Computed example of a mutant assay.
Amino acid sequence: MGQRGSVLLLGGAGQAGSDTAALLRRRYPELPLTIAGRNQDRARRVADELGGATAVTVDLARGDLGLPAGRPYAAVVATLWDSRLNGLRFAQDHGVPYVSLSSGMIDIAPEVTAAAQRPVAAPVLMASHWAAGVITLTALAWAEEFNRVDTIRIGAILDEHDAGGPAGLADLERWAEVTSAGYARRDGVFGWVGAAEARVELPSLDGTTVTGQTVPILDVTSLSLATGAPNVEFAFAIGESAGTRRGDGPSVEVRIDLEGEGPTGAPLRLSRYVVHPDGQRPLTSLGLAMGIERLLGLRGEAVAPGLYTPEALLEPRHAVEQLADAGTVFVDA
């Protein structure tokens, strides 16, 4: 396969980690995987289910992560918050790619600084976007229908029973404690949106509305700079999903609205939902898996050292195709 060592999944026994590992195993049966967690029994169960995987106990408070010396790794993937950045430092010390999922816009400054200080040490992929970047990639794919994009609005409804495991819930609580303000680009200016102004009503596919708010998330900056759109915002709500209301279980719905100028010069609008009946987990694991395979050169060339976001590495149309293959449905609003 061209790469050496194993893909080290920090938090690999959690929801995002185990789902990503399972997807990688289906795509690359011979790819070595290491499931790293604080609980050896849980990590072992996940590794045994995957087959051909290794389970290790990890200590994120240690610079060496508590791992045996001399064991080669191909990449380090933090599927939980790497609060001390020891996972990133470990990857840099070993010259292998690093992927982060849980930093969020409010926590990326140390990560960006660490990558900037050692720019030739390793490729660093910041994937703290919604679902590890697949929604941004989908919006970029649909934006290709426009000559000019003026406005991008995204509204994601997450079912209250699909907020993730302990690590995911801890992320949501941490972000909520830091700020209740949103972040958006308006008339070309990036800025914070006060808590009261940030509150919005998000329409579900079945016509029900859920109260949410504009949030500070990396999708805003990625979409703004990739398209040049002067107006970009991302709103998020937790509540009862349409799938739950139908009795089918928690689903996830993300509405993407684009406005601008079409190929003929006439005004063009597009409003479409990204829906998965199994909730957000298949979307997040797909985003992570695509990032990992790109970094390792399993699709395309291996990535040189540097700091990256998903849209800098992944092709939007390919992401939409992969989402469809994973059971995602796209519905015109």
Rank of each mutant, 00 (worst) to 15 (best):
G249L: 12
R148I: 04
T208R: 12
I256K: 01
A61I: 00
V274L: 15
V134K: 05
G327H: 10
A131S: 14
G297A: 09
W142N: 02
E315F: 07
D150W: 06
R272T: 08
L67F: 07
W175Y: 14
A61P: 01
R269F: 00
I35E: 10
G104A: 04
S103A: 14
A326L: 12
G11N: 08
G194V: 01
V46G: 05
S204A: 15
G70K: 12
L8S: 10
R84N: 06
L323I: 07
I135F: 10
A69Y: 05
G164V: 09
T208P: 02
E259Q: 12
G212P: 04
F330M: 07
A53V: 02
L218K: 00
A55C: 08
V58Q: 08
E253L: 09
D159V: 12
S285F: 08
S251F: 13
V303H: 10
T284P: 08
P277I: 07
I154V: 14
D187F: 06
T264Y: 01
V99D: 03
A75I: 01
P267F: 03
T244G: 09
R299P: 00
E177G: 11
A167F: 06
S83Q: 12
E311W: 05
A139K: 03
A167C: 05
H94G: 05
H161F: 15
T221W: 00
L67K: 10
Q213V: 00
Y183D: 03
L67P: 06
A116S: 12
A226G: 00
A266W: 06
I108Y: 04
R25G: 05
L65N: 04
T211H: 07
V178G: 00
G168C: 10
E233N: 11
T79R: 05
